[in-house]
Design a protein around this nucleic acid. Structure first.
Lengths: 353, 353
DNA sequence: CTGAAAGCGCTAACAC
DNA sequence: GTGTTAGCGCTTTCAG
């Protein structure tokens, strides 16, 4: 049974690919209407289905020319293998490991939302998603057919390892040279800064969680850079112990108690932290946004009602991740995408009095 | 294509069923070794596969006797339909909606962990799990083949609706008369109380989140009941605005500031809240467990290191939920299970000084 | 009321 | 190198 599963396929209806640089949908696809099978590809490429299967599964014994012909047919038809059929035939589903870095907290809203959106993706149907912990050696503890990596740091051993072993994977985060997706955190930081600047808040503090996370680092970078570009005084950084509401709350309370307040706005690195910030402000008798404006980041549903924030399109990130995963499984060209973010103005930010 | 999907099947290897009252694994299953298919059932029941399919899918036109024969064959062989095959044939996967009550916060660690364990269940392979929000009318916003209900309250409209329409579902929570699974929250509350009582803590406070949640209500009930049974003074209840660490923290801080501390231990309704409680204690200069013992509930990984807590076996709950879901899909007898919890003693509880 | 048979889309073994 | 073919386990006509 099952030998090499690398060429494993993903389902996926057809049309819309978004946020990629690629041309919209493969043209020909719409032609006949729907559901292109391996047969269609074979016909189009003028070969047998066996051959198509071989190139898709990276099994050798196919001449370069035929291979090219097949690949192009796949491309133009917008063919996506049907996993149910594959699973039935293989007697085994395609497994995908959701791998978080060692010590990376998995119980975070972002991961949770990502997971939900992942499930909502038709293209992920039938993929056997599994949460795979990472050992102290930095490698995933379980062998899977492919991986989605979260919380990767600069020289994450998982990347080298997976690359070396030729295991398909996509990184959720920012990284050139590997298949990756992430929200444009830096641009988000800038948007927050520009919004606050426009409102006249030249003195601000940025509540964040240190540099452990690349995303958070990027947000801070963007925020600071925009202030610098505007010739405004650099925002003060206030570090919280962790990324929780409680952590931000305590950091804020401590800060408010220890010094004269010299700012009129705070930018929290996440919505959760913004919740803590607002609670602290409120406990200190400060009104939001009258006394202090607050801007969050993520636009998490169910978190921070009415909060002005930077919306991150997690659904799009998840969708793209699945898309990239599929490309990894069928050995297409590596690409890396950055999903745009946007400012959502709600009730917690206002002009400086 | 697809008409009635009610009889939809679940995958599921074979052997172990746990925590149910049912006899271990269907005897005959082990006989030939593995992988019983619809063919085996047909042979065993001395009918054709077509007939087996018919009874499984609740499609009429089968005599009561044959139906019975088939059902019993299914039972003794431990047959579980193969979803991949079904999906292939139906041209459509079996969809399962994860439905949370309206207003029920989905970004909670419990839900998150449950989801992870759900994915880890082989028997859930290929089921198309989807997060389905609930509208203000109290009903799931999307039509699915089956549902898993979370956060159901006393007369949740979803239950009546689903029952009426004959849609298969399982409730994650406590409820007689419907397929349901949940941890034994009340027993957990008792365990916490008994532990504290044993350590000599006759005066305690229970930090909880009001009565909105049945689970939390049960925990409180068990806790209070055990104190009453022991003839000890009733624990004082301290309500937090929400179930978060921040909420518990603020409630504790407020409480510590407003009155003389008359207790030597606190039982928090969740590990998260315990984290908040401990932070507040620490900020007040109190040592845990030297000055005050703290007991949590859930035993969430990555939350509250070293916390004495009541472990809830979420994996078992998830596993059972899938099992019940499968039973619902194949129209078996309704049953409802309660998963045992246990006390995990770690460093936050100690004898009263 | 029940059996037989044709696929669903794909993989893999076996020919050519 | 490439085509052909036999299933994978199930649903669903179509006969009887």
């Amino acid at each position: 049974m099952a030998t090499n599963l690398d060429g494993a396929p993903l389902d996926g209806s057809s049309s819309d690919r978004q946020a990629s640089g690629s041309p919209v949908a493969p043209a020909a696809a719409a032609a006949t209407g729907a559901h292109v099978t391996i047969h269609d590809v074979a016909t189009a490429a003028a070969v047998s289905i066996g051959t198509v299967s071989r190139v898709l599964n990276q099994r050798g014994g196919v001449s370069p020319v035929t291979r090219a012909r097949v690949r192009s047919a796949v491309e133009t038809l917008g063919y996506r293998p049907d996993r149910a059929a594959r699973e039935l035939s293989n007697r085994r589903p395609v497994t995908v490991g959701l791998s978080t870095a060692f010590g990376h907290r998995r119980l975070i809203p972002y991961f949770m939302l990502f997971l939900e959106h992942l499930l909502d993706e038709p293209a992920s149907s039938g993929l056997r998603l599994r949460d795979v912990p990472t050992g102290p050696d930095g490698l995933p503890a379980a062998a899977m057919d492919a991986y989605m990596l979260f919380g990767a740091h600069a020289d994450d051993p998982r990347i080298a390892d997976l690359n070396r072993r030729g295991v398909p994977f996509v990184l959720v985060g920012q990284r050139e040279g590997v298949r990756s997706v992430a929200a444009d955190d830096e641009a988000g930081g800038r948007l927050a800064a520009e919004h606050l600047l426009r409102l006249g808040h030249s003195h601000t503090v940025h509540v964040t969680g240190g540099r452990q996370s690349q995303a958070l680092g990027d947000r801070a970078d963007g925020f600071l850079a925009a202030y610098e570009d505007a010739g405004a005084p650099p925002p003060r950084l206030l570090a919280s112990d962790d990324l929780s509401a409680l952590g931000a709350y305590r950091a804020m309370v401590r800060d408010l108690a220890s010094r004269e307040r010299a700012y009129t706005a705070v930018f929290a690195a996440t919505d959760e932290m913004a919740v803590g910030v607002m609670a602290a402000l409120s406990d200190a008798g400060l009104k939001v946004p009258a006394d202090v404006s607050v801007v969050g980041f993520d636009d998490m549903p169910e978190v921070g009602d009415g909060l002005t924030t930077i919306r991150q399109d997690i659904a799009a990130v998840a969708r793209t991740a699945v898309e990239l995963l599929h490309e990894a499984l069928t050995h297409e060209r590596v690409r890396s995408v950055r999903v745009p973010v946007r400012l959502i103005v709600r009730g917690t930010s206002a002009g400086r009095r």
